[in-house]
Design a protein around this nucleic acid. Structure first.
Lengths: 356, 356
DNA sequence: CTGAAAGCGCTAACAT
DNA sequence: ATGTTAGCGCTTTCAG
């Protein structure tokens, strides 16, 4: 089948060592030998086996990427960024879509270890218990995106969720809304409480009572948003603005609002979170809190690669408990977010004029 | 660092062969030895190296997946399906996003060979020349999704694009539209001409002149659809219905229509293609031709796995030129598509009443 | 039932 | 400048 280095060596009349050297581009080979080797390799269509090399070199040039759910448009954008940067550094991605299943997520952790990937980017919205245990003594370098492992020394990065919630609510409040509601996600999602806290903060800053903000929990997808909004409307019929956990829920909320015969933003304003690609194209275009998705991915991979370089230079793999990259914020880097005001938010209508 | 099989063997007081057998679950080991081995493995937290095993077994249990552009929501859905099925069969995915760059796509081909993946799923919207050359003598089993390699014996699957175009146009025609336009994609996209042909066919079936259907080419994304619609409107102002190459273009088209002060479907009806997840949630919800995305992915992986099984049972890797799976439609399987009528299409307004 | 040993394809000392 | 050799960690005959 595929030619091996031995085949090339034989054909070129040299040793495998020479072939290896020539192909590695290290000098130290007479021009004519060099040529012969190159010719032989070409003639045989020789492709060095990365698996053999990995075994020898103890590095696979592969990164694992674990994500919560590839069907949430946030993740493809993140995957794209991670892959781009990994590629820049000569790494390939083993894609692990947890599909929202904690068991599947956990099993991927072991699989990545077995596969001897050089490092893993964990980009999940929340860490399960098994995950957390594993992270306490990870057999390989890890960096976290969108979550933190409190007390654990892994580099991590996330958006400023509290500020995001704050900005979303402030936007509505500044527009004149007085009763705003929140659509949030379950406990599994680490960012959810933070975003809620931000909303409360903004409300309090205006001298209103943060405890009076109605909150409904739902699945963080379109359907979940739709359902949750119904609940919210029932709980707080006088509400004129809603902050959603993410863009998908916001889209669901807009649908539900319309289904009630109300309009967006005429009757109720909606603010999302993420600024996924389609947010600009919904109708009305979604006002949302933009996360710097590409930067999230870039930072994660660069930190990982950095750490691998250190380790490669140093003595052992990466230190017992996977110490965080030297000097770098193991406390958790946080990226600023910004409000993108689009059509789904506007001033509240005069009281008492809502139809239905 | 990580324990090796040797460490386990030593600790259990047996040979590595025994450890291997026990861990492989093959019987033939006294219960007590078995226990000792298992204990040792557990104590050392032993994780067998998949790379060493791959070298020995000449199989990586890894599939390469090449896609055109992960940012088009069609692909995440496909990736999801491919990963699910691969996982069912014990395979992992090396994700290769071509990001719409033919060079990047081609370079991934070589990379996958180097990595010795067991097979590759090529899910791209069109094959470049380098790609086609490579496919003429692929060093590993390949299956094509969404494209065919004419004359080449690779299993391939795609939706019935002609029929899709036909259904889309027929829907509009049946609604009473007489002047329909088409937004298509460039030559790089294999499905584009097929879908156009389908539209023409439907038009001809109604006794209208297929040659008179205005067609504009654009990038197959929202922006492209927006731009192309402007052009289309300029070319054929009397048009009342448009069939877009995909949902993204359709969304762009709807935006552009609205930007002109017209309404969808009041003034112009729009039909998309793919039925991506968000299609149901645009406003108005998009009428579109649904592809069986999950089935596309499942079929591809199952065919690949099937072929690998044959090869594994047989003598060599997979035959010189990568013969197609025994008896299976190497001609190219085609999956039916179906129209999902939603809000973006409706009967044409009486002539002469369009605003602007 | 278990062990010894060869070898998957490659790289890197260490010779020469 | 090039060849010899010893593994990397695993599986699998082949013996015993």
């Amino acid at each position: 089948m595929t030619a091996t280095i031995g085949d090339v060596a034989r054909r070129a009349g040299v040793s495998t060592a020479t072939v290896s050297r020539v192909l590695a581009g290290l000098g130290g080979a007479r021009p004519d030998t060099r040529e012969r080797v190159l010719d032989a390799a070409r003639a045989l269509d020789y492709r060095p086996s990365a698996v053999a090399r990995s075994l020898k070199l103890r590095t696979t040039k592969t990164l694992g990427l674990i994500i919560t759910d590839i069907e949430n448009p946030f993740f493809p954008q993140l995957v794209r960024a991670v892959e781009d940067v990994a590629r820049e550094h000569g790494f390939v991605l083993l894609l692990c879509n947890a599909a929202d299943d904690p068991d599947r997520e956990a099993s991927y952790l072991d699989l990545l270890v077995d596969r001897r990937v050089d490092g893993v980017v964990i980009a999940v919205s929340g860490l399960g218990v098994r995950h957390r245990e594993w992270l306490a003594e990870p057999p390989l370098p890890v960096v976290l995106v969108n979550t933190t492992a409190p007390g654990l020394p892994h580099p991590s990065i996330a958006s400023d969720n509290v500020d995001g919630g704050r900005q979303a609510a402030a936007h509505l409040l500044d527009l004149g809304h007085r009763r705003i509601g929140v659509l949030t996600a379950g406990a599994r999602h680490a960012a959810a409480p933070e975003r809620v806290a931000g909303v409360r903060q903004a409300v309090a800053e205006r001298g209103l009572d943060p405890a009076s903000v109605p909150i409904v929990v739902g699945e963080p997808d379109v359907r979940g948003g739709e359902a949750a909004l119904g609940q919210l409307l029932a709980d707080a019929p006088e509400m004129t603005g809603v902050v959603a956990y993410n863009d998908l829920m916001a889209i669901g909320a807009m649908r539900a609002i319309r289904a009630c015969g109300c309009t967006v933003p005429g009757d109720i304003s909606v603010v999302g979170f993420d600024d996924v690609a389609i947010a600009a194209y919904t109708d009305p275009p979604l006002t949302t809190i933009a996360q710097a998705i590409a930067e999230l991915g870039r930072w994660a991979v660069e930190r990982l690669v950095e750490r691998l370089a250190e380790a490669g230079a140093g003595v052992d793999g990466h230190g017992p408990a996977g110490r965080a990259a030297g000097g770098h914020a193991s406390a958790g880097t946080v990226l600023p977010v910004r409000l993108i005001a689009r059509g789904s938010s506007g001033p509240p209508r005069e009281a008492g004029t809502r139809p239905g």
